[in-house]
């Protein structure tokens, strides 16, 4: 590709993902992402609290449709995400490599991510059976408990595990019928944006997953305090941050899910209890004759 025939390089613009669309941040701000040699890899949107607010509106709007979709359909769509990701393996491996992972580790992470999607796709029509129950009561009632999606979940994705950790937190929430707003890894945001494209190609309805990039310090408080968010998942091990999240989340008694110090690569980091953490238990008392 030397000399006069060389092409003009086509660089990808990394944008955010809100309501099934790829806008730039409404704030117009960005920050340069550098590789280990200090070379700029890409300009990343520095998402604002208004982007977050718009995402929550989108997630809330998408919630009734997604939570009432059949388990079978949700499972199919999540399986489809895995298929789409499989087709773009090389791109994701290259992006992880660009952000400092070795080729071998990058390949391992992408493979594990695809497998994780398949794993949770399988759980879509099974977790209800595992966690629901018929309860013994001492009156003439048929008493049973079922799982229901809690609503809009905000996710502060892990900083270190930028693809596997991201997906391992999004998928258990959405397989259970929740919609979510996610803040990508601040240090390695590339895969999160590309993963949004995969979601888009996999027919995940707009608003079910919204992905923002930006500064954690700036957005954590918003993720934790928004009154229209029903649960928050975080993986940060800083106790001051955890305290801030717990206090802000108390205003509307959000579920707070702490996934600090999880090694997402391990087999035991995938299990149906992660689905249960963003579910509510609905118990029904149905009168019966003695």
């Amino acid at each position: 590709m030397a000399g006069s025939t060389s092409r003009v390089p086509v660089e990808k613009t990394y944008k955010i993902y809100i309501d099934g669309k790829f806008p730039r941040t409404e704030s117009g701000r960005f920050f340069p992402l550098e590789d280990s040699d200090g070379e700029v890899i890409a300009n990343i949107c520095r998402g604002s609290r208004k982007d977050f607010r718009n995402s929550v509106v989108a997630a809330r709007k998408a919630f009734p449709g997604w939570s009432s979709a059949s388990a079978y359909l949700r499972g199919q769509i999540i399986y489809r995400i895995a298929e789409m990701l499989e087709g773009r393996r090389e791109q994701f491996i290259a992006e992880l490599h660009l952000q400092g992972l070795s080729k071998r580790r990058a390949k391992k992470e992408v493979d594990a991510t695809i497998d994780r999607l398949i794993y949770y796709a399988g759980w879509s029509d099974k977790y209800q059976q595992v966690f629901s129950a018929v309860n013994p009561v001492s009156s003439s009632h048929f008493n049973f408990s079922v799982m229901e999606a809690t609503g809009v979940v905000s996710v502060l994705a892990p900083n270190e595990s930028s693809l596997l950790g991201l997906v391992s937190n999004i998928v258990p929430a959405i397989v259970g019928g929740n919609t979510c707003v996610v803040l990508a890894s601040e240090e390695m945001p590339l895969c999160a944006v590309s993963f949004a494209e995969v979601l888009h190609a996999a027919d995940v309805p707009g608003g079910v997953v919204n992905i923002l990039t930006g500064y954690r310090e700036e957005l954590t408080g918003q993720f934790a305090s928004h009154m229209d968010v029903n649960a928050i998942i975080y993986c940060d091990s800083d106790t001051d941050v955890a305290k801030e999240i717990e206090i802000s989340a108390a205003d509307n008694i959000k579920r707070v899910v702490n996934r600090t110090n999880t090694d997402w690569a391990q087999e035991k980091s995938q299990n149906p209890y992660l689905i249960k953490e963003t579910q509510e238990t609905k118990t029904t008392w149905h009168p019966i004759g003695s």
């Binding site: 305090s225 009154m227 229209d228």
Partner: peptide, 8 residues
């Protein structure tokens, strides 16, 4: 300073 929900 906190975004609100229609629930309230």
């Amino acid at each position: 300073g906190i975004y609100q929900s229609a629930d309230y």
